[in-house]
Structure formats: structure tokens, C-alpha cells
Design a protein around this nucleic acid. Structure first.
Lengths: 148, 148
DNA sequence: TAGTGTGTAATAGTGATGGTTACACACAAA
DNA sequence: TTTGTGTGTAACCATCACTATTACACACTA
């Protein structure tokens, strides 16, 4: 049960903003880096902004900025901001209520699925955008802030 | 991404087989319990059989059986048998190679995503089909084997 | 005031998914 | 051996989420 590409691109966006370190980035520039369209980026920025992770400056010289320090933004926050669907999908049509298994299977597996989901979320809570930005800087052999 | 319901239905199938405890179940009967089509069930049984989790008896009185004890079948085995896609999707089109962030973001986030995936898998490895079957029996107030 | 960039609606193409029909084949029961 | 049952798989279809793209109103800066 896959996530959309939104999570990966959203992390990309936030990492770019972290690397930019206070200088507003245009959606078009982020789109170039992520190899997608500027509207896609703005759609994600809209979600990230709703979640309180980014903010925008309108007008010439404007763009997007982190709304709080990169080290305060956990990947879990990003995940929650852009992923809509449940990690585990259940039956498309609910199983037979009156069946021995069908009538109880959902309730029976829910605790296990919850534990699995929470384990995943706990890992995503351990890493921050600052961590990712630092790793990108290390791999790319540059320092933050990066002058574009 | 439309997330698949295969995992939930596959667990349903195996739980039914565990509850049946050696008596072959027809795909049609499982389909009734899961509220889907028999061909959908047979498609999943085909994957589960390939993974060594079930086997089938052809002919009259035939159906499907567990290929090994329910307590030896971990939900992780089921997950691996029926889920095709990666848990985390990355960019649809690879990001800009020559960009500071785009050129390094994939490598930078991969370790985090791997840890998250492994944490999820570790939880799914802790639960078995026997556990789910026992929980279903408890909730449904019946004992295994259940005579249909 | 002119120009820049955001925010969002609308639309379209794509791909995975699940539902369904059809049918060949293996096996059991008689 | 024959008959009937149930599996295994291919083919086709409708649906839906997702991403890309166009279009345009609006806010803000220089």
C-alpha cells in the first residue's frame, strides 16, 4: 500500500527551503529541482502551509519559506500534511457481517495494523527536515545556506 | 495512489482457512465471506500459493488449505506475498541531477525511509495468522475448528 | 502602476485496482 | 470411464487516485 509521491516531493520542497535558509524560493525553481510542474509544487506548498510548516511571500521577489526552524519539522509532520489515505486499506466493500470470519476480521486485525502504523510513524518522527538538509549538504559537498 | 486492499483480503482468506482447520474451502465461499468475487479470491490464492502459504485441492470437494501451520505464517509473509509496490513512492520523474538538492535528495532520504519500512515490517512479523484466527474466534465466540 | 509570483479551479491522461465473464483443465466421486 | 465440481488464468471493463497542465484572479513588491 504505497504512499503517493507527494511525501517525497514535499520533503524535497522543505529541504530546498531549509538549504535556502531564509531566502524565498519560487515554486518554479523548486519545480525545476524536483522535475515537475510549478503548480504541483504550489499545491503541495498549500498543504504544507495549512499544516503550519511553510509560509509564502507574494509579489516580486517572493516565494516560500519555512514557517519554523527545519529542526522543528519532523518527517512525520510532513507525512501527515500531504498523505490523505490510510496506510492500510481494508476491504473495498465491507465483509459479510453475519459470517464467522467476515464479521470479526476487521476488528481482529485493526490492533495489529495500528501497531505497524505507529511503528512507522515513530521512525518518521525521529528525523527532521534539518537532518535531511544536512545529509544533502554532506552528499553534495556544500554548506547551508547555499547561495543559488 | 490507490492503495490495494489485497493485504486485508489475503489475511481474511488465510484466517478463514485457519478457522476451517484442514477442511478445504472453496474460493466461492471465501468470496462470500469477504464480499467480493471468487476470481478475486483465486487471484490472491494464486499469489499466496506461489509464496508457499497455501495449496489447493482440485476437483469435487476441493478448495484451498494452508500449506503450513497458521502459527508459522506471519502477517509480514502475507504482506510480502500480495503487495507489489514500494511502501514509499519517490518522484514520478527523477529529480534534477545537477541540482544541489535534487541531485542528492533521494540518497539522503532513503535511509530514513528504510528504517520506517523496517519498523513496520517488524511489527507485521510479530503477528501470525494463528493470532488473528484466535482473535476472530474470541470476538465471534466460537472455537476452532469451526464447522461451517 | 507594472510586473512578479502565488493560489486555486478545471481538465486531461495515466496506471493500478477490483469486478466480471469465459473457458480450459485437473481431480474426485459415481 | 464418465460426470460434475472447483481451480487457474486470460481478457476486458469501469473506477478512482494521482500527476501534469492550462488558465486566470489576486496580492504584493519594486
Amino acid at each position: 500500500m504505497p504512499t503517493s509521491t507527494r511525501f517525497a516531493v514535499a520533503v524535497h520542497i522543505l529541504t530546498a527551503l531549509a538549504v535556502s535558509d531564509g531566502k524565498p524560493l519560487r515554486s518554479e525553481d523548486i519545480a525545476y529541482s524536483a522535475n515537475t510542474g510549478a503548480v504541483v509544487i504550489r499545491g503541495l506548498l498549500s498543504r504544507l502551509s495549512d499544516a503550519g510548516l511553510t509560509r509564502s511571500q507574494l509579489g516580486a521577489g517572493g516565494g516560500s519559506l519555512l514557517a519554523k526552524p527545519a529542526r522543528k519539522i519532523r518527517l512525520l509532520d510532513v507525512y501527515a500534511a500531504v498523505e490523505d489515505t490510510e496506510l492500510f486499506s481494508l476491504h473495498r466493500t465491507p465483509p459479510c457481517e453475519s459470517c464467522a470470519v467476515g464479521g470479526n476480521i476487521l476488528e481482529a486485525i485493526q490492533p495489529v495494523l495500528d501497531r505497524a502504523r505507529k511503528a512507522l510513524e515513530a521512525e518518521l518522527a525521529k528525523a527532521t527536515v534539518a537532518d535531511v538538509a544536512a545529509e544533502v549538504a554532506r552528499l553534495g559537498k556544500f554548506s547551508i545556506p547555499l547561495v543559488w
